[in-house]
Amino acid sequence: MSPALVTVGEMTLRALARRRASLALLIALPLAFYLARHAQPWQAVRFLGVGLAWAASTVALFAALAARETEPRLRIGGWSWRELVAGRVVAIGLLALLLTAGYVALVAVDEPIGTTGSLALALVVTAVTGVGTGSALGALAPRELEGALLLFIVAGMQTVVDPEGTAAKLLPFWSTRELMTRAVEGSASSASLGAALAHATATVVICGLVLAAATWRRGEGKPG
């Protein structure tokens, strides 16, 4: 693995790890959602997915915004934009997956509804699309408040709009919804695995393109 990614990623995680309270809240968010609807298992896992989506995208967003101050200086110091962004996003991605593993263990033990495998798939896809979305918004948003509000809109709308309508498919967490429905309803589900994975892939690709475009634009600012 590139030494650049390891160093940048390690420092991203070290800095984040020092914010104990934030980490605790991050872990607690999906858990709280899950426990709140624990009486109705199919609602519980669905909201676990929503909570994880919010947690993953929020930590990715704030990591991106916090890095804004130091990344230009690190760029001058010798890292390339690609190394800085990739190192940060991959590190946050690993953190999100670690969190996800915890929740997979939770549903494996608690066995609310559906198979652990299908739930695990839904949660992993959620984490990945969440980190992608948060990082992309972090590249676009001018400051913290705008970024947070954009995230509320994007993530919140997913729970608000009619899940059958086209608007839902244009939002990043549609794949989460589909995969959760599939996990809950079992093999007789109308939800399509293929469509969900395709949507998730497209979401990640679009987020990647947004990041690349934003990075390229920042890179243009450097004279000879």
Binding site: R14, R18, E69, T70, R73
Partner: peptide, 25 residues
Amino acid sequence: GYAPQHGGLVAQLTPCEQFVLFGRA
């Protein structure tokens, strides 16, 4: 090597960690 008037530091890292981050670059 550039040092701005304010900021440009990673708030939650120790100086030694920041030396590694900048030095490895």
